[in-house]
Design a binder for these strands. Sequence first.
DNA 1: CCTTCTAGGCAAGAGCCCTGACTAGAATGG
DNA 2: CCATTCTAGTCAGGGCTCTTGCCTAGAAGG
Lengths: 371, 371
Amino acid sequence: MEPAKPSQELLRSITDEHVLRALFRHRLLTRAELSTETGISKPTAGESVRRLTEAGLVVDTGQRTPGGRGRGRVGSYYALAPDVGTALAVSIAPEGVVAECVDAYGSVLARADEPIGRPARPEDVSAALALAVDTVTALTLAVDVGLKLEARPRIAVVSAADPVDRHSGRLLQLPDAPFLLGEIDPVTVLARRVDGPVIVDNDVNWAAEAERAVTPLDDFAYVYLDEGLGCAIVSDGEVRRGHRGLAGEVAHLITTGPEGRAMPLIEVFGALGLRRPHSTAIDVGLLLERRPPEVVTAVGGLIAALTTLIDPELVIVGGRWGTPLIDDLAAETARLARPVPVRAAAVEDEPSFAGARADALFRLRELIVGR
Amino acid sequence: MEPAKPSQELLRSITDEHVLRALFRHRLLTRAELSTETGISKPTAGESVRRLTEAGLVVDTGQRTPGGRGRGRVGSYYALAPDVGTALAVSIAPEGVVAECVDAYGSVLARADEPIGRPARPEDVSAALALAVDTVTALTLAVDVGLKLEARPRIAVVSAADPVDRHSGRLLQLPDAPFLLGEIDPVTVLARRVDGPVIVDNDVNWAAEAERAVTPLDDFAYVYLDEGLGCAIVSDGEVRRGHRGLAGEVAHLITTGPEGRAMPLIEVFGALGLRRPHSTAIDVGLLLERRPPEVVTAVGGLIAALTTLIDPELVIVGGRWGTPLIDDLAAETARLARPVPVRAAAVEDEPSFAGARADALFRLRELIVGR
DNA sequence: CCTTCTAGGCAAGAGCCCTGACTAGAATGG
DNA sequence: CCATTCTAGTCAGGGCTCTTGCCTAGAAGG
């Protein structure tokens, strides 16, 4: 809205940004290729490379254009300097912690999987988190023995399978809702291990982010039905998290329960005996065995509420029991006063981790271009 | 995200935009004042004025700095050219149509009120709309007898007291929901009367827009309780309208009805005999007379759904029966599993019209600066 | 060995913005 | 009444950035 001050320096920074983004995409480019790729003239692109090299963001790799590719003069390939840094993507789930380190090109440099025993105690989760991150950081250093000045990632993006407070990054227990990991605080665990911001959000929000990358829709909802209940809202092309980051924490939504009684969604599972003993989690195995129609009706109430309140173009369903019940849910929503298309999630492979990884990459690049 | 191509022309356009925006704010400025106001150097500001005058966007008003204000040389006051155009703001409600014409400074040039008889038939509404717009356009011409080349406004923003399809701008009847104006099509009525885009949206969304201008919150919900039921959602600082523009059309939301039965919100009013005979509207007078606790419970269910799905920092309540019941609603929401503050609307004077007018002004300015 | 072709550099030129000095012109004040 | 003071606006100079067009270096092809 408010445009920046007009100045020559603004032009220069835009040029440099174009050059850096072209290198994000193509990894290795000559000055001539940079010029055609960005649409900037050759002398200007060359000058930008000189500036960026001086600033330490870009290096001459020493590689030359291979003879095979034409007759002309050989060109020098430039690339991002190794010390532009890396980003960390982390997933924390009851099964375990996964951490990956990605570079500014989007390549995964290293990965660490750290299982957690059942039941997951909060201190076990925090320990696994610390261990996974330390492991992946060490592996990254081993992969790249170059003169990396700073071993720590410049940013971390964390996906957690529980409600997350948007401002503190802490995991929150909501009354009576499933709470799988406990009151852990990823920001504190990672502060010493990351040289920059630590972003934490709910796994369902990240899964929706991953879905958004492959779905051209601006407005959809992502309903996640697993041990926990969750939902993410994409509106006007962005995941909307709400004030505290608790948008889509739907355990308490009033819906139609057994015998037409109004009750919170989570209590439907209690009334049907589908919650795991001594736990707030839903018993997925039992639910899939019985497939009670009351559950479909109750989720239909959730989808109806989504339709009336946020008007999605599509409802995407994921999770270990959501996907198998997709046809029942589609039939149920077709009967609603305002029907809405329902479809299974397109991203099946670690969806929330994929979303967190994509965001980590995006944020790392923003840091590098200096926004 | 994607920055523009770096070019000298970009700088120039940014300079011109700064100059125009300074004139939006201050109406009458000398070149020297423009320089200090925008932070741009005197020669550059002067050059921009020269360009904009040439382009016909800015004129030398002929007025000179008054002698009283200092000793120095007199300066020339510049202003926007009269033919930068005007914007139209329109409100369509069962009581009648209101239209105002505003200029780029935000001054109201003319206003027309056109009542509609009860019950409002769609053709009466369309006729009143046309008449109000024609009246306000004629009045605008009468106010400013200068050489205005184009009498028609460059943009119209319409508030309608019914659900609006986001893409077509048509009013939509949702099953069983209150429908006050009928299937009218403001875009078609205004197309010949406006020399540019016609934006139509629900009145509650515009009221939320007005509230957003005076409330510093990024995430809130606006619940409107009147003859119709509506709600608007502000998330990350913007009103979110959903795919078809039907976000917040809550008549069918499942809530707790009489005797704890799950039922759509609108049916609660039917069950309690609070709907007007031969109409889909709620009988506000009767409701305020009886103040049944079941209504408070039912709206509590709506607020609970808002809290779980979009996590607002605050719920703002407006409308002819929402405001009087604010204390009951606050007490009800305090008992929820996730309590949320509730407050009456701050903008009381024609809130939806104020929001539409502000948006009309904003869009007119964007047209002028050429975005 | 000459031709062909491409990466990169150089030179010239145009445009935009800035600083600092200058001019025009009105009010102030002795 | 005239010198002083003060301000709006312009001018000159300079620094940058971007672009086009031309030139050079250097490798492959024939």
